[in-house]
Simulated assay, not measured.
Amino acid sequence: MASCTLDHWVIEAICRGEHGDAFAVLGPHELADGRWCLRAWLPEAIAVEVRGRPASVWRV
């Protein structure tokens, strides 16, 4: 099964604003097994809502 995890150094670079290509890491990405992974940097968020099709909603 494909993974949506990131190396620790990538996460730290994103948090510090030092990653050279944050959009290669953040946002929607299709995994090798056809599933999707959505990564976001929202440091002050209390909750996140992702709306999909048709009318699917995921709350984290």
Rank of each mutant, 00 (worst) to 15 (best):
H8N: 15
G17I: 02
V50L: 09
L6P: 12
S56F: 10
A47H: 04
E12K: 13
A2G: 15
I14E: 03
L26R: 00
H29M: 04
E30P: 05
V50H: 04
D7G: 06
V25L: 09
D7T: 03
T5V: 13
A45G: 04
V50M: 05
V57S: 12
I14V: 15
R16K: 15
P28A: 03
R35T: 13
G20K: 02
W9V: 13
S3D: 14
S3C: 11
G20N: 05
V10N: 05
W9T: 14
V60L: 13
C15W: 12
M1W: 09
P43M: 12
L6K: 10
R39S: 10
L31Y: 00
A32M: 08
A22M: 06
S56C: 10
C37I: 01
S56T: 14
L31N: 06
P28S: 02
W36E: 10
E18T: 08
E12T: 09
H19C: 00
L31T: 04
R16N: 09
E18Q: 14
I46W: 12
D7E: 12
V50K: 03
R53N: 12
V50S: 02
I46A: 15
A45P: 01
R53P: 05
A45M: 02
D33W: 03
L38G: 01
E12N: 12
H29A: 06
V48M: 09
L42G: 00
G34L: 01
G20V: 07
E18D: 14
H8D: 15
V50C: 06
A22S: 07
R51C: 07
V60E: 12
V60G: 07
D21I: 02
A13Q: 11
V10E: 14
V57Q: 08
W9G: 10
R59C: 06
D7C: 04
R35L: 08
G17A: 03
A32Q: 12
W36G: 03
